[in-house]
């Protein structure tokens, strides 16, 4: 059999990912994480802070919760179910940094955790910065630096 023909057969016979079910769970899990975030925000605002000043503390608390759930071995299970619903919120970002930090502890604090901590998040950070730079240039071209 020709390799090309075989590859077509493989594609035809490959069990597809359960997209509808995955999407539904992504909605549920992602939604629940947002509910937690909203709860934290409302909680802080009930203490008398305004919306603008609680933005950073809410993010910090969510990052902490995501890291804690990763350390307790819960976040990977949540993400297995929720997929991008768990990866996309800031808790998912925390997971992507804490997971390699834990994993490569065995190779020591420098060559292990230190060198590998951004193994997963690195591309997001690098291209996030690049995108921010390009968007900044475009904005400058349009508005000439005026706020």
């Amino acid at each position: 059999m020709e390799p090309k023909e075989y590859r077509q057969r493989v594609r035809r016979m490959e069990q597809p990912r359960p997209v509808a079910r995955n999407a539904l769970w992504a909605f549920v899990v992602g939604g629940l994480i947002c509910v937690v975030g909203q709860g934290v925000q409302s909680g802080l605002m009930s203490l008398g802070y305004d919306q603008e000043s609680v933005k950073a503390p809410v993010s910090i608390i969510l990052v902490f919760l995501g890291s804690l759930a990763t350390a307790l071995g819960l976040y990977d299970r949540l993400a297995k179910l929720g997929g991008m619903g768990a990866n996309l919120p800031i808790t998912g970002f925390a997971n992507s940094v804490v997971a390699p930090a834990m994993e490569f502890k065995q190779e020591g604090p420098i060559m292990g955790t230190g060198a590998r901590i951004f193994q997963v998040a690195g591309p997001v950070i690098a291209y996030g910065l690049l995108t921010a730079f390009v968007v900044g240039l475009v904005r400058f071209a349009i508005s000439g630096g005026k706020p």
């Binding site: 990912r17 990763t70 350390a71 976040y75 993400a79 997971n95 834990m102 994993e103």
Partner: peptide, 11 residues
Amino acid sequence: YPLELGVQRAP
């Protein structure tokens, strides 16, 4: 991937 990283494996 690292063990604790949230990943959805392919069927």
